[in-house]
Computed example of a mutant assay.
Amino acid sequence: MAEEEEDDYLGDLSRFLPPQPSLPPKHSSKKVSNKPPILPTSNKKPKTLNWQEQRKLKREKQQKVEDQLTLANIESAIPQSNIGFKMLKQMGYTPGKALGKEGSGICEPVGIEIRRGRGGLGREDPETERLKREEKRVVRERVNEKELMEEFGSRRKEEWWRKRVVRSFWKGKGVLDQLEGKELVEEEKEGDEKEGDGEEEEEKVITEEDLKDVLIKLRDEFRYCLFCGYQYESVEALNSNCPGIDEDDH
């Protein structure tokens, strides 16, 4: 019991501390400003135009004003005090009617087009001509690209067809040799003799005529269709069951 009381005595030290007065709440030392925040300004200086650009801009503004005045003067009718109007009246012109004999001419004056470029009559604006040249160049490139693609496609198609003919020829030639009872050993001997001679034989070019000759021989002599892969019992069975002599017929 004495030990428990000693522990309680040492644990509760707040009883021996004097009461401390309550302090007022601390306020922030920073003062709140009602002024709007200052935004960062750019250090870049406005671009100044050189004398050539200033002169060009001034000339464009002056031309624009002149064009507006010209168009406004064109829309207004010619006064009767004009010397040209007086000359027309002396030649029989009546205001509001067409020019020419019996009023067969035009009633309205010929329209004008204000041109500021240095090109002669019939010449378009340089920027318009440049755009047209660019458009023609793009069209020409597209046409050339299309022609190249067509040429490439036809060349690949021709190459594929040639390989197909060669493959079918050698396949039919092998079947024909088997049906005729030819031995492949004899071909190998012939090949050895050619190698012994040392003469280079040019590679034979297989054509569609060569393939057709092999196919006809298989059908006429052995009633065999290469693309059906079958030897028929009779010519009548071959003609009635085989769709045709070519591979496309199958």
Score class of each variant (00 low, 15 high):
Val165Pro: 05
Lys136Glu: 11
Leu218Gly: 07
Glu151Cys: 07
Glu208His: 02
Gln80Gly: 08
Val143His: 13
Pro21Met: 09
Glu193His: 07
Ser33Glu: 08
Glu135Trp: 01
Glu4Cys: 05
Asn241Met: 07
Pro19Cys: 09
Ala2His: 11
Lys217Asn: 10
Asn43Glu: 05
Glu180Val: 06
Asn239Met: 04
Arg59Ala: 13
Ser28Phe: 00
Gly96Gln: 05
Val65Ile: 12
Lys26Ala: 11
Leu13Asn: 11
Ser29Leu: 08
Gln63Arg: 15
Pro19Trp: 07
Glu124Asp: 13
Asp248Ile: 12
Ile106Lys: 14
Ala237Met: 12
Arg137Met: 06
Arg123Lys: 15
Glu209Ala: 12
Pro79Leu: 01
Lys194Asp: 09
Trp51Met: 06
Leu88Phe: 05
Glu108Gln: 02
Glu200Arg: 12
Arg137Lys: 13
Glu124Ile: 12
Glu158Phe: 11
Glu53Gln: 13
Ser81Val: 10
Glu4Trp: 05
Val138Ile: 14
Tyr232Leu: 04
Leu88His: 06
Met91Val: 02
Glu141Thr: 07
Val205Asp: 10
Ala98Pro: 00
Pro109Phe: 03
Gly244Val: 03
Glu247Met: 10
Glu183Ser: 15
Glu201Trp: 12
Met149Glu: 15
Ser234Asp: 08
Ser234Trp: 02
Glu75Trp: 01
Ile112Lys: 10
Leu99Gly: 07
Ile38Asn: 06
Asp210Ala: 02
Ser154Asn: 15
Trp170Arg: 11
Arg55Phe: 05
Gly111Tyr: 02
Leu211Ile: 04
Pro109Glu: 02
Gly100Trp: 04
Gly122Glu: 06
Gly11Ala: 11
Arg142Gly: 06
Glu102Asn: 15
Lys86Ala: 12
Ser22Phe: 03
Leu13Arg: 14
Glu108Pro: 00
Asn144Leu: 13
Lys194Thr: 09
Glu151Arg: 15
Gly174Trp: 03
Phe227Thr: 00
Lys132Phe: 01
Gly191Trp: 11
Asp210Trp: 04
Glu3Asn: 06
Asp12Glu: 10
Asp197His: 06
Pro21Asp: 13
Lys44Asp: 15
His27Tyr: 07
Lys173Val: 04
Arg167Val: 06
Asp192Phe: 08
Ser240Gly: 02
Gly198Val: 03
Arg123Cys: 14
Gly244Tyr: 02
Pro243Tyr: 01
Phe227Met: 00
His27Lys: 15
Gln231Cys: 07
Lys101Gly: 08
Thr41Trp: 03
Lys86Tyr: 01
Asp210Ser: 03
Lys212Gln: 11
Arg156Gln: 15
Glu201Leu: 14
Gly119Phe: 00
Glu186Asn: 13
Arg164Ser: 13
Glu203Pro: 00
Arg133Tyr: 07
Gly105Asn: 03
Asp210Ile: 01
Pro19Asn: 11
Trp160His: 15
Arg55Cys: 04
Leu39Ala: 07
Lys61Gln: 14
Ser168Asp: 15
Cys225Gly: 13
Thr128Asp: 12
Arg162Asp: 10
Pro79Met: 00
Pro95Met: 02
Gln52Cys: 02
Asp246Cys: 03
Pro25Tyr: 01
Glu221Val: 10
Val185Ile: 12
Glu190Leu: 14
Glu102Gly: 10
Glu202Ser: 10
Asp249Met: 14
Asp177Met: 12
Lys45Thr: 14
Leu57Phe: 06
Leu238Trp: 00
Trp170Lys: 06
Glu113Arg: 11
Pro46Asn: 05
Leu184Phe: 06
Ile206Gln: 03
Ile114Lys: 04
Glu190Lys: 15
Lys217Leu: 09
Arg15Lys: 10
Glu129Ile: 14
Arg115Tyr: 02
